[in-house]
């Protein structure tokens, strides 16, 4: 039994210690955002935030994250009360199929949490582990910029923003 802190809540997980975090999030906790893309740490689709850092959940075994703060896209905001990063991606219409987007958003969120005003080059470099096949890159870059602006100008963050740390 492993205790996992996800989006501010504690869960008791009954899974082998070598189970990648991805499958625990998706199958045990029924969270959709982290996606299976390669299972090899090559594409970024499975990215979540662990203790403030972007992490590839498909190559992160459960035993490495016990007790750490895990945040998924679901923990940032909702359709009705989107977090700045979510609002920005909606406003920029930064998706085609959107499969890769949740992972990108989590890495962008981690970046913005430690650097509220990243340059264009910093955003590109940060997103380098992530693949997008539809070619939505230009919009994604704009959305991250917009999110930085939204975070900067937001007077009050939504209440559920807290879990993003």
């Amino acid at each position: 039994m492993t205790t996992l802190k996800v989006n501010g809540q504690e869960h008791q997980i009954e899974a082998d210690a070598d189970t990648p975090l991805l499958y625990v999030l998706r199958d045990e906790l029924k969270l959709n955002a982290a996606k299976f893309g390669c299972g090899l740490g090559q594409c970024g689709s499975c990215t979540v935030i662990v203790d403030g850092k972007a992490v590839l959940s498909c190559v992160t075994p459960l035993l490495l994250v016990e007790g750490k703060q895990i945040t998924t896209l679901e923990g940032l905001g909702t359709d009705e009360a989107p977090a700045p990063i979510q609002r920005a991606f909606m406003e920029e219409q930064a998706a085609q199929c959107g499969y890769c987007i949740a992972g990108m958003m989590m890495r962008a969120q981690a970046l913005l949490q430690r650097n509220s005003k990243p340059t264009d080059a910093e955003i590109r470099a940060e997103l380098a582990p992530h693949l997008c096949r539809c070619g939505t890159h230009m919009r994604i870059l704009r959305a991250v910029k917009r999110a930085a602006h939204l975070m900067d100008t937001a007077e009050l963050l939504p209440a559920n923003q807290g879990s993003a740390r």
């Binding site: 090559q42 662990v50 850092k53 590839l56 490495l64 994250v65 380098a128």
Partner: peptide, 21 residues
């Protein structure tokens, strides 16, 4: 740090574990 991919070329990739461990 892992091993970074080379843009546009066949190259090994290893994920880094700085954020995980």
């Amino acid at each position: 740090a892992g091993v970074r991919p080379v843009e546009g070329e066949r190259s090994p990739i290893m994920p880094g574990f700085a954020g995980t461990m």
